[in-house]
Every structure is written in structure tokens, then in C-alpha cells.
């Protein structure tokens, strides 16, 4: 398993952190700029938009951060769903024309749209739209939620696919520190085993990888709010890192002890161990090409006789 994938496996199991919320917020803000004076309908001329929702003078404007945090708390979505939402947001950013502008609640709407699509397509049960409307604490009505959902899927061209590469690209800042920790732990284990079995020669590849990782440690880390950065300094802390869960902290969670040695999460991999290596290799390569291009060709495991 590649290091990237291993890091990803750790990441999806993490509880939702404040830095994750901040990352979602900053990504949402980067999708479109806000110009309050412009009506919402000028977002794009290609797709009919509802008129600007009436804004009360008292202004129920909620900061995007608390809006996002509130949605996550109410709907109890977990990291994987948020990851898919973020991929949709990043796609939307590349789809929207550069000169488009939004109104006050546009950021709230596009975030909610991405979250609903991700939750509905990934989870066995997802809140109904009326619940999503309730989760917005009065900011949006059911009708508005229904409209924004359809608008969002329209912008995405009904394409809800999320590839592994999408995830890797979008979450590079989060994966880099995890990757580094894994490498450090691997190195420590190597050291330990070297001491146990003295005559064992040094594994040159691992050393080389480590060297690369050190030089590449300038991978962009998240802004000041990134708590992941602080984990970095505690070197081999991976085996005992317990991340606090500010978003879900209303309910007690068991401590999550991460252990590299425990590779049980990769159960499917373990199951296929006794498969013909050729078949396994073939299906792997197919899977990779699938992830890159999305529309792979029909596969034939058995050669027709």
C-alpha cells in the first residue's frame, strides 16, 4: 500500500476537527466571491436561479464557520462525507465562471448543497431536506434547500463521482503530516528491529524515502488554525494521538488510539491475499486507471476460450 493511501486510511477515521471545519470554510469561501449589492441571479446566466432571498433588516447573517459547524453537529456527518463535500466544492470552483459573484448567503448555500449531495450519495440514511432546512436555524427554507440542491447538482453536470485522486489533491495539507508520522514510526520500527536482529542490513529504500520526506516537509500546512501542525512536533506520537473533537463533543466519544501496527482497517486487502497475484495485479491496475479516468473499459478476468 502506498504511503499516500495509508495516510488516507488514517485520515478518514479521524473525528471531525476544528481545523477540518476551518478548511471547509476557507474552501467554500474560495469558490466564489461575495458582492452583496449584486442579486443572486447574476451568479450564472446558464442556469435559472431563484431571485435573491429577502433579507430582513435585522440580518440573520450567521458566520459561515458557525453555520458549517452547526450543520455538522446536527446531521452528525463524519469525515468521509465532509471529504466528498469538499471535492464537490473544489469542482464547483473550477466550473463557475471567474467573474461570478454571490450574495450574503451564497457561501452557506453552496456548502449545504455539497453536503447534501455527499450525504445522500454516500450514506445509507441521510436527513430529509426538511431536516436540513431545520439545521440551518432559520437561515434557509425547505424550498430554498430543494432549489439549491438541484442547482448544485446541475452545476456539477450530475457528475457525483469522487476519485481517490480528487481526495488526494484536495486533502494534501492534511495528509502530509500523517504521512510524515507514518514514515517516522516505520523508521523507528526499523531501528528497533535492527537492534533485535543485529546482522540485518539496513533497508536502503526506506532510508532514501525518509530522506526525501525530510526535504519535502515544506508541504503547505494549513493556516494558523491547523492543529495538525502541532501533532507534528510530537514525533512518534501517532500511536497515542487522541484528537479532541470540538464539533461532536456534545456526545462522549471513545478515545481513538491509532496504531500503525494494527492494519485491520485494510480488511479487504487481507482477504485477497490468497488470490492469484496476476489477477490481483490486473485488478489493481484497472482500479487505478479507473480512478484517473473514471470511465474504464470493460474488464475481462477470464480469457474467453
Amino acid at each position: 500500500m502506498s504511503l499516500d493511501r495509508e495516510a488516507l486510511h488514517h485520515f478518514v477515521k479521524k473525528p471531525v476537527s476544528t481545523s477540518m471545519v476551518s478548511f471547509l470554510v476557507s474552501t467554500t469561501e474560495s469558490v466564489i466571491s461575495i458582492r452583496s449589492s449584486k442579486p443572486y441571479s447574476q451568479l450564472s446566466s446558464a442556469y435559472p436561479s431563484p431571485p435573491a432571498s429577502p433579507v430582513e433588516e435585522t440580518s440573520k447573517s450567521v458566520s459561515l464557520f458557525s453555520f458549517v459547524k452547526g450543520l455538522i453537529r446536527h446531521s452528525r456527518v463524519q469525515t468521509p462525507t465532509l471529504m466528498a463535500s469538499l471535492v464537490y466544492l473544489v469542482k464547483l470552483r473550477s466550473i463557475l465562471p471567474a467573474n461570478s459573484h454571490g450574495v450574503d448567503t451564497t457561501h452557506h448555500r453552496i456548502f449545504l448543497g455539497a453536503l447534501i449531495l455527499a450525504a445522500k450519495s454516500l450514506n445509507d440514511s441521510s436527513p430529509f431536506n426538511k431536516c436540513w432546512a431545520a439545521y440551518t436555524d432559520g437561515l434557509l427554507t425547505l424550498k430554498e434547500v430543494n432549489t439549491l440542491e438541484r442547482e448544485m447538482i446541475g452545476y456539477l453536470g450530475w457528475d457525483l463521482r469522487v476519485t481517490e485522486q480528487d481526495i488526494m489533491n484536495c486533502f494534501a495539507p492534511f495528509l502530509a503530516p500523517i504521512r510524515e508520522k507514518i514514515m517516522r514510526t516505520n523508521e523507528e520500527r526499523l531501528q528497533a528491529s535492527r537492534q533485535l536482529l543485529l546482522p540485518t542490513p539496513v533497508e536502503p529504500l526506506a532510508i532514501r524515502k525518509l530522506a526525501q520526506s525530510n526535504s519535502a516537509s515544506s508541504v503547505p500546512s494549513l493556516s494558523s488554525s491547523a492543529s495538525t501542525a502541532s501533532n507534528l512536533s510530537t514525533s512518534s506520537a501517532l500511536t497515542t494521538v487522541v484528537e479532541s473533537d470540538p464539533v461532536h463533543d456534545f456526545k462522549p466519544r471513545p478515545l481513538r488510539l491509532k496504531s500503525i501496527t494494527n492494519l485491520q482497517y485494510n480488511q479487504r486487502k487481507l482477504q485477497v491475499v490468497n488470490v492469484d497475484p496476476k489477477v490481483e495485479e490486473y485488478s489493481k491496475s484497472k482500479r487505478q486507471s479507473f480512478n484517473v479516468f473514471g470511465n474504464n473499459q470493460p474488464a475481462r478476468i477470464i480469457v474467453e476460450s
Binding site: I116, L117, K120, S121, S126, F128, N129, K130, W132, L142, V145, N146, E149, R150, I153, W158, D159, L160, R161, F290, G294, N295, N296, Q297, P298, A299
Partner: peptide
């Protein structure tokens, strides 16, 4: 669309887009 997009419809769209194979029904368009 009183309660938004139907969940099973969304899934069907998503998985048929992801799976292209001669032994899986082809989704031509949505």
C-alpha cells in the same frame, strides 16, 4: 421534488457513472 432529490435515484446515477462495464447497464444521460 417536494423533499429534494431522491436518494436512491442519486445513488443509481452515481454508481452507474462510476461503473462502466459490458455487463453493467449503461447510463447514457441524466
Amino acid at each position: 421534488f417536494k423533499d429534494g432529490l431522491d436518494m436512491s435515484a442519486l445513488r443509481e446515477v452515481k454508481y452507474l457513472q462510476e461503473l462502466r462495464h459490458e455487463n453493467i447497464i449503461e447510463l447514457v444521460d441524466v
